[in-house]
């Protein structure tokens, strides 16, 4: 996943398609799904007092719009946050451009999500 061309080839189903990435995701889920199930049979994690699990199950516009924008960026660059951070020490020019831009994008999105100032009742 740290090789952008390989990621783009996974997405290029009408061109030089390389299905490898599906095996990364499949391998991860094969371990994570039973692993999570087993771990959550405990009442608490080992080094913390509670599990922090996402509780929302509504599908809202932010979720779909965010994922859609994410996918466009992922397709353009062939990089997503995990592999980008992981390959940062190799210091290829690609990640050195991508990571700062990604951090700016994240901060911008956090700005839009800040609760708007409440008006004080007169």
């Amino acid at each position: 996943m740290a090789n952008p061309t390989k990621v783009q080839n996974f997405l290029d189903i009408f061109g030089t398609w390389d299905p490898s990435l599906a095996f990364v995701m499949g391998g991860a889920i094969l371990v994570t799904a039973p692993g999570f199930w087993f771990v959550q049979k405990r009442s608490t994690p080992f080094f913390h007092d509670m599990f922090h699990l996402p509780t929302r199950n509504d599908i809202d516009a932010r979720l779909v719009a965010g994922a859609a924008i994410f996918g466009i960026g992922w397709g353009l660059g062939g990089l997503c946050p995990g592999p980008a951070v992981t390959s940062l020490p190799f210091a290829t020019s690609g990640v050195l451009v991508f990571i700062p831009a990604m951090l700016v994008g994240m901060s911008l999105a956090k700005l839009t999500a800040l609760p708007s100032r409440k008006t004080i009742p007169a």
Partner: peptide, 15 residues
Amino acid sequence: LGLAGILVGFGAVLG
């Protein structure tokens, strides 16, 4: 790649 980074970061936080 710069544009990709901004979109990935923005989209990941929004979504």
